[in-house]
Design a protein around this nucleic acid. Structure first.
Lengths: 245, 245
DNA sequence: ATAATAAACGTCATTTAAACGTTTGTTATT
DNA sequence: AATAACAAACGTTTAAATGACGTTTATTAT
């Protein structure tokens, strides 16, 4: 009745990994490279997000989780569905479409985009079967499809969420120093924060638990380690309804 | 290759309308009522959101705008795509499916959900061809499909957005009193606010413009009217990056 | 022992927030 | 035309949070 456009449903995953050492927020991308049959021409040479078709009997959330697991082996990471991308012409670039099995111009692919938060070090990048690599969000390579837009929108959503929820700790190791938290905020939000005031403010939070441990192996005064207690945070009924307009 | 599940793409629109008089946030719903052929049985008797199939050559955003216009005649309202709902079993209720043309059990409908913000009075409810009605968000009727969940998630998203962006003014008339703003926050967030502190704080915002006008027709001291300047708000480079965790 | 350096602590002035009390302008009533 | 009623509008006081700095401390490398 309708016509010949075939609808395809997929999830795409923006995997954010924060690197405490380089203070860089990275995105995990996979390489695409394809030559013409006679090898005279490079048809595709760029990077893309991981994504996959959503199976018939699968929820969107489960599809995203499956894709992340397939790519990284990880299953318990912070996940957020942040936007659907479904413009009818979003995959009409013929070069790109060669990548898709049985690609025709009358397939419309709607993708439900998720982002995940984890630590760069959590992924064994050496033995990754998709040859996935980390790229700084602020220095992305050539990207296929509309994936640059998807990453940018994910990043925008993440920034806003950072301001109202303590999701920064999803990006940091379980035990962290105050300065590492500050560095993460500065890097992700692109701002400068006064260390002394930030330190005071953070240490006063009841859900920031000081540990009887210090850094070691550093060649300066080792910093005290802290951890974040999600329990305490949730029990103090946050969403304190501070209207901040 | 894949199998016999037919994928259907739709948008669903949560139309929020705030009523300044009753201080109630409402959702616009349409009635479903269907009897069996011999009229011995009521098959469907509930309410649903407005939604529609997304046309082949149409963006998701345009589909949502089209649905709103069809329902209300309005085209310039605040709109947000907030979540996709696509669980394989979300429409497997046979009773519900009778509503869908050519419904079979092997159709999977993924819906991209939007919410719109407007004033209840903007909609001419008397002459509405879908027989749409307003229902307080806090007192919804029996709802079809997963529409209760969709409304609740939209409402949750709206509440959070209210705390960080001045979208409350999308729900209020162009000229409003300070108390009307307070009432809207209290009603939507479910909180109590001290009027004297709230008033002082709001009046001090540069983007809250006092007018040389007062209420009339009220039987008490008429309140001064104000308006919200989106221009001023945006120029003062908000997103002042107040980390509020 | 000492230099170098990041971590950690401290101070003060200013701003913002919370919790109240008081005055004012309008309409309705006498 | 006085006054009661009442929400609007303004004011005060105290406590807490923030912003902008200066100083001390613990560690490693020399």
């Amino acid at each position: 009745m309708e016509s010949k456009v075939i609808l395809n449903l997929s999830v795409d995953c923006v995997v954010f990994g924060y690197d405490t050492n380089t203070k860089s927020l990275n995105a995990l991308l996979i390489k695409r490279y394809l030559e013409s049959e006679d090898k005279s021409e490079i048809l595709v040479d760029d990077h893309v997000l991981t994504g996959y078709h959503v199976y018939e009997d699968e929820t969107l959330d489960n599809a995203a989780t499956r894709v992340l697991k397939e790519l990284t082996g990880l299953t318990q990471q912070y996940k957020k569905q942040f936007k659907a991308f479904g413009d009818p012409d979003r995959l009409t670039n013929a070069k790109d479409l060669l990548w898709i099995e049985n690609a025709k111009f009358d397939i419309r692919t709607v993708t439900i985009a998720y982002y995940f938060l984890l630590k760069t070090e959590d992924v064994d990048i050496e033995n990754n079967k998709y040859d996935a690599k980390w790229f700084p969000v602020k220095d992305l390579p050539e990207l296929g499809f509309d994936h640059r837009q998807i990453i940018n929108e994910a990043y925008g959503d993440l920034k806003i969420k950072c301001l109202v929820e303590p999701i920064i700790f999803e990006l940091l190791p379980d035990k962290f120093t105050i300065n590492e938290v500050q560095d993460a905020y500065q890097s992700i939000l692109g701002i400068e924060i006064d260390n002394r005031n930030f330190r005071r403010k953070l240490i006063n939070k009841k859900y920031i638990i000081p540990l009887d441990e210090k850094q070691f192996g550093v060649s300066k005064k080792p910093a005290k380690l802290y951890m974040f207690s999600k329990d305490v945070y949730e029990k103090m009924f946050q969403k304190n309804y501070l209207i901040n307009i």
